[in-house]
């Protein structure tokens, strides 16, 4: 797993390369835009970590040049410029993710992992949180190794929440996924399913919580 780190600051680049090595990646370093494009052309990298502030050109132009020659290598943009406009511009130019300096190294590793796994993630067959696992294909849910009996709707809700664990899932999204676009949804149908699911889980394990964010949606998280 070889990465290309494009960063002109020697110290930060060095730390990045070291940290990535500790995280299990091989990493090459480029300090200039032309160098980066040249190296990306020579070697098949699994992903590129790209700083936007380069001495010879804007990092965005590197990104555009890559995409222009149909190089689809995932690109994670590092930037010191955090504004909505910059973010939109970056994503439009073909960036896969965006990280604002300064960042926690763990976050960089997590984002890279997500980037590299992304295509498979959609078909991940086993979702898990704490001591719970959900086999997407067989619709079976285990808690602490024990098979649970949940209704198909409850499993569906659990799956949606688990796919975005630790993040808020808007209620509308659950409605859309459960009932499609039929629109024939009673206003509290989702609430009822979530309530039942929460009760079922509460009876079986104390380490998982389904939070209600009133007016917005739900979130599943491990009990701290």
């Amino acid at each position: 797993m070889r990465l290309l780190v494009v960063e002109d600051n020697k110290e930060l680049a060095g730390l990045l390369v070291e940290g990535l090595k500790a995280g299990g990646y091989e990493a090459d370093r480029a300090a200039r835009a032309d160098e980066a494009l040249h190296m990306a052309g020579e070697t098949e990298y699994v992903a590129i970590v790209l700083d936007l502030g380069l001495p010879d050109a804007d990092g965005m132009s590197v990104l555009r040049a890559l995409r222009a020659r149909l190089d689809a290598t995932p690109v994670l943009v590092l930037t010191a410029r955090d504004s909505v406009n910059n973010r939109v511009e970056g994503l439009r130019a073909g960036a896969d993710d965006y990280l604002v300096k300064p960042f926690a190294f763990e976050e960089l590793l997590a984002r890279l992992e997500a980037l590299l796994r992304r295509p498979q993630q959609q078909i991940a067959s086993l979702l898990s949180i704490a001591d719970l696992t959900l086999d997407v294909a067989s619709r079976r849910v285990h808690v602490g190794g024990q098979l649970q009996t949940l209704s198909s709707r409850e499993v569906a809700v659990l799956e949606i929440l688990l796919r975005r664990k630790g993040r808020v899932v808007p209620k509308r999204l659950i409605e859309d996924q459960l009932f499609g676009l039929s629109g024939d949804v009673s206003s509290n149908a989702v609430e009822v399913y979530v309530h039942r699911l929460r009760k079922q889980l509460a009876d079986r394990t104390p380490s998982i919580q389904i939070h209600t964010i009133r007016g917005v949606g739900y979130m599943v998280a491990e009990t701290p």
């Binding site: 110290e11 070291e18 300096k101 300064p102 190294f105």
Partner: peptide
């Protein structure tokens, strides 16, 4: 400001 902070952060993390 942010690049030095990023360096500091990376050092602290390790």
């Amino acid at each position: 400001l942010r690049t030095p902070l990023a360096i500091l952060r990376a050092r602290v993390d390790t």
